[in-house]
């Protein structure tokens, strides 16, 4: 999926745990300008790109590159997030236009599995009945993140499991 510059800037700022005010202060612009960049209402000045890249510990090329990011990635140990901060998204797009997003904190999923409960969102969904959630979590423990499961049923429903 193509990611806009604004979305990239937002994701990078969140990743670095910075506020818009802090970023604005460091770059010498107003917080409103930072907000506009992140909402894709405007773009940062070309002269600011090196500073932005340096602030977020990335390159200008990576900021402007529109190549789609891989849907699944294995993170090295030092880049992995704490399990408490991770979320398991179960996304169901039904053929009749209904959209269901269940965002389960990973710690809650693990607790449920530890006490021997099956998740009705997975076990009760005919498209996901054969998914072994414990194995999915094992992969997550080893650093795998992204879209781990995608199932398209015969009636056009699409179910995805994404870990972030």
């Amino acid at each position: 999926m193509e990611q806009s510059l604004g979305k990239k800037l937002f994701a990078l700022r969140r990743e670095h745990g910075l506020t818009q005010d802090t970023v604005a202060e460091r770059l010498g612009v107003s917080p409103q300008a930072v907000s506009k960049w992140e909402n894709d209402s405007s773009c940062p000045d070309v002269m600011l790109l090196p500073q932005i890249a340096q602030l977020y510990n990335t390159t200008i090329d990576a900021l402007l590159n529109n190549n789609p990011e891989p849907e699944v990635a294995i993170l090295p140990a030092e880049k992995r997030k704490n399990t408490d901060d991770m979320i398991l998204h179960i996304i169901v797009n039904s053929s009749n236009g209904d959209k269901v997003r269940v965002n389960l904190p990973l710690v809650l999923v693990k607790t449920a599995l530890e006490v021997g409960l099956s998740l009705p969102q997975v076990a009760g969904n005919p498209n996901l009945q054969n998914i072994d959630l414990e194995k999915v979590l094992l992969l997550v423990d080893r650093g795998l993140i992204g879209k781990l499961v995608e199932v398209e049923s015969a009636n056009g429903d699409i179910v995805e499991i994404v870990v972030e």
């Binding site: 408490d84 979320i87 009749n96 236009g97 209904d98 997003r101 904190p105």
Partner: peptide, 17 residues
């Protein structure tokens, strides 16, 4: 415990056609 870390996160988001 999850709430302490992820307060304000949408848990369920259902949008009908």
């Amino acid at each position: 415990r999850a709430r302490r870390h992820l307060k304000g996160q949408p848990l369920v988001d259902v949008e009908s056609a």
